[in-house]
Amino acid sequence: MKPLRYSINVTLDGCVHHEAGLAPDEESMRYWTAEMERADALLFGRTTYELMESAWRHPATGRWPDWMREWEIPFAEAIDRTRKYVVSSTLSVVDWNAELVRGDLGQAVERLKQEPGEGLFVGGVTLPLALADLGLIDEYVFVVQPVLAGHGPTLLAGLRERIRLELVDRQEFRSGAVALRYRPTSRSVT
Score class of each variant (00 low, 15 high):
Ala23Phe: 12
Trp56Arg: 00
Ala179Ser: 15
Val141Thr: 10
Val109Thr: 04
Gly106Trp: 01
Asp40Cys: 02
Arg69Phe: 01
Val143Trp: 03
Val16Met: 12
Asp66Thr: 12
Pro3Lys: 14
Ile163Lys: 04
Ala41Trp: 09
Arg30Val: 05
Thr11Glu: 10
Ala130Ile: 05
Asp133His: 09
Phe121Lys: 11
Ala41Pro: 10
Leu42Gly: 07
Met1Leu: 10
Asp66Gly: 11
Arg63Ser: 08
Trp32Arg: 09
Ala130Ser: 14
Pro74His: 08
Ala78Leu: 09
Val10Ala: 08
Tyr31Met: 12
Asp133Val: 06
Ile8Lys: 03
Tyr85Met: 00
Leu156Trp: 04
Leu12Ile: 15
Glu70Pro: 12
Ala55Met: 13
Glu172Cys: 04
Gly62Lys: 14
Pro65Gly: 02
Leu165Tyr: 12
His17Glu: 15
Ala130His: 12
Thr11Phe: 08
Pro3Glu: 11
Pro74Asp: 02
Ser175Pro: 07
Asp133Gln: 14
Val16Trp: 05
Asp169Gly: 12
Leu4Phe: 11
Leu134Trp: 06
Glu161Val: 02
Leu100Ser: 08
Ala78Asp: 10
Leu167Ala: 10
Thr190Lys: 07
Ala177Lys: 07
Leu4Glu: 11
Arg160Lys: 15
Glu19Phe: 07
Gly106His: 10
Gly152Gln: 08
Ala98Phe: 12
Thr185Asn: 00
Gln114Glu: 14
Asp104Pro: 11
Leu91Lys: 06
Ala177Ile: 06
Glu118Asn: 13
Tyr49Lys: 04
Glu70Lys: 14
Leu159Tyr: 01
Ala34Gln: 13
Pro128Asp: 05
